[in-house]
């Protein structure tokens, strides 16, 4: 059974379809929130709605599914999206996937595929959230580094050897070793590889 806080937002202009999907996903253990159009969803949506995903019909009056997907992407929300369509064509499928849709489901919808897609969406969001949390911890820990340690870390991450670092900072290789050990201890990482990965995650987060 899926944990209670997992929310599925359902947007469809057909009342029967959204009621049916709402009931099905509710019975399957998700919290559901149902909307008749994209606008009312946008008003209700906040970035920190916990673990959630969006199930949206592509063709709706007003703002359609693809436009909503783009809006989410632009506003930096990491909400996974599953797109439904009455008559799938290649163009709209491509657009949906380019905007990082988890799946593109053709109506009438296969319930197994729907549930699988939602599970995948939730799983992907868990990974994203874990990463977010880990990055937050890492950023917090890196505040405790001294300026010299930060310098050394930057050079280690960019792949320089101890000898090169020692030369450019005008310190002994032995001292570089000591700084490196302290950095790894403070940031609670076990290997240089992990250090590199963590710091890349943080920097890519900042870019986004």
């Amino acid at each position: 059974m899926t944990a209670i806080e997992h929310t599925v937002f359902i947007i469809d202009d057909d009342p029967s379809v959204r009621d049916a999907l709402g009931l099905l996903l509710g019975v399957s253990g998700y919290r559901t929130m149902i909307f008749g159009d994209a606008e009312s969803f946008r008003r209700a949506f906040s970035q920190d709605s916990g673990k959630a995903c969006l199930l949206v019909d592509i063709r709706m009056p007003g703002m359609d599914g693809l436009a909503l997907q783009k809006w989410l992407l632009q506003s930096g929300a990491s909400l996974p999206v599953i797109v439904m369509t009455g008559h799938g064509n290649v163009d709209s499928a491509r657009e949906a996937f380019r905007a990082h849709a988890i799946d593109f489901l053709e109506k009438p919808i296969n319930q197994h595929r729907l549930l699988a897609a939602i599970e995948e969406a939730m799983a992907r969001q868990s990974i994203i959230q874990q990463e977010h949390e880990r990055n937050a911890v890492f950023t917090e820990l890196s505040r405790t580094l001294t300026p010299r340690e930060k310098e050394v870390m930057a050079m280690v991450v960019s792949g320089r050897h101890n000898r090169e670092i020692a030369e450019s900072l005008d310190i002994s290789s032995r001292t570089v070793e000591v700084h490196k050990a302290r950095v790894m201890q403070k940031l609670k990482v076990d290997s240089i590889a992990q250090l590199v990965r963590m710091s890349l995650g943080v920097s890519s987060d900042k870019e986004a």
Binding site: D14, S16, V17, D19, A20, L21, L23, L24, M84, G86, H87, K107, P108, I109, N110, Q111
Partner: peptide
Amino acid sequence: LNQPLTALSAF
């Protein structure tokens, strides 16, 4: 037809 069919199978 797709709409009622989708609703049917979900219900």
